[in-house]
Amino acid sequence: MKKIVTSVLAFMGMFSISGIQSQTIVTTTPQFRNVVLEEYTGIHCTYCPDGHKRAKQLAADYPGRVVLLNIHQGGYAVPSGNEPDFRTPWGDPLAAQTNLTGYPCGTVNRHVFPGHEQTAGGTAMGRGDWAQVAPEILSDISPVNIGATTSYNSSTNELTITVEAYYTGNAANDTNFINVALTQDSVWGPQTGASSYNPDDWINGQYNHLHMFREFLTGQWGDTITSTTAGSVFTKTYTLTVPADFYGIPFDINNCEVAVYVTETTQEVLTGIQVPINAVDDGNHAPYYGIFTNVANEVLDASFGNTVSFNMNFASSLSGNNDFVVNLSTDAPAGWTENFSIGANTYTSQDTITVAGTSPLAVTVNVTPDNTPKIATYTLSFWPVN
């Protein structure tokens, strides 16, 4: 949705904004960052199914904003007897830089979140922390957008992936790294704890492993992006003759997805996308068109007949004059009244205004309750007409 949204939880709430070449796939509109959750797991890890369930819920809570990679690694991933070995050569080096101390664990964009780490200064976190820290990433603006196309030719058994990275701003590092990974759903096998902690994926004595990391197409730490200033474009095409298996585990292209993400070094994932086979993703998942600042009030109390006001500024990120649709919606009782004012003009629900450049506009949301009690939510949305 082409929106910039600020949610006003009246009387109990918050404001938030939930070589030279040209790009042909990826959007050039600035985007908020997406979450890349690398989960470290194993078939003999009792609580890992709960981690899988939590990761799946996180992706459901933020559609199109979460990339999931389940990396089978460590002692709990060692098979016994005739059990399948879901480990890859890539898992141990990835885990080694997380400072993990237990399973399941995961990194969110390989970022250090103080107070959430398994080990101070490390990126590994327990499963209860992932959903807590994800909003911090999702509300941050990415300096780079990622787009990709994927195509599988069954006649030649070749998978072709073209990736693009477009820099909407200057990255902190002169070089970045693009990573292209294959993940697979519907990999059936054993899993300790599945019937207790994720029974939905435990069927007829077998566990449905999802988002299983299978292979890197870019090596352990990715391919180098040498130009990371605003307006720079990186494009590369990868072609893979699809094997019958990776490391002894059968590979099914029909259940495969392609994860593409950009890192600053071997750490700090800037953003990522996850693309099905035979699909196009332009990376336009969470466009950024502006920001609300100087929010004077986040929580207000009011009584019957008395008006309260939420004050803030809105600044567009678009240069020149641009028409924005502005909408105020609410779940307040029908007897309450509300409006919003921008400059000297007052509006009751939705209208179109012209925003000149990036100079901030003073915005006020006014609410007058009747005698019906309610903790009401007001949502003020700006989105460009074009």
Rank of each mutant, 00 (worst) to 15 (best):
V308K: 09
S309P: 00
S309F: 10
F310T: 04
F310A: 12
F310D: 04
F310K: 03
N311I: 06
N311L: 13
N311F: 03
N311R: 13
M312G: 01
M312S: 14
M312Y: 04
F314T: 01
A315G: 06
A315W: 08
A315K: 13
S316H: 07
S316W: 06
S316I: 05
S316K: 05
S316T: 07
S317K: 03
S317G: 04
S317W: 00
L318D: 08
L318T: 04
L318M: 15
L318H: 08
S319Q: 11
S319G: 14
S319R: 04
S319K: 06
S319V: 12
G320D: 15
G320H: 09
G320T: 08
G320L: 11
G320C: 07
G320S: 15
G320I: 07
N321R: 07
N321H: 10
N321L: 09
N322G: 10
N322P: 05
N322Q: 15
N322K: 15
D323M: 09
F324G: 03
F324D: 06
V325K: 11
V325L: 11
V325Y: 10
V325S: 13
V326M: 11
V326E: 07
V326P: 01
V326D: 04
V326T: 10
N327R: 08
N327V: 05
L328N: 03
L328D: 02
L328S: 02
L328W: 02
L328Y: 02
L328G: 01
L328H: 03
S329Q: 09
S329L: 04
S329N: 11
T330Q: 01
T330Y: 00
A332Y: 00
A332G: 03
A332H: 01
P333M: 11
P333N: 11
P333I: 07
P333A: 12
A334D: 14
A334Y: 08
A334H: 04
A334F: 10
G335F: 06
G335I: 06
G335W: 09
G335H: 08
W336L: 02
W336S: 03
W336K: 04
W336P: 01
T337I: 12
T337C: 04
T337E: 14
T337H: 07
T337S: 15
E338Q: 12
E338A: 05
E338R: 03
E338W: 01
E338V: 00
E338P: 00
N339L: 07
N339Q: 12
N339D: 15
N339R: 08
N339Y: 08
F340V: 10
F340N: 05
F340R: 10
F340G: 07
F340E: 10
F340P: 09
S341N: 15
S341F: 02
S341V: 06
I342V: 15
I342Y: 12
G343P: 05
G343R: 09
G343F: 06
G343I: 08
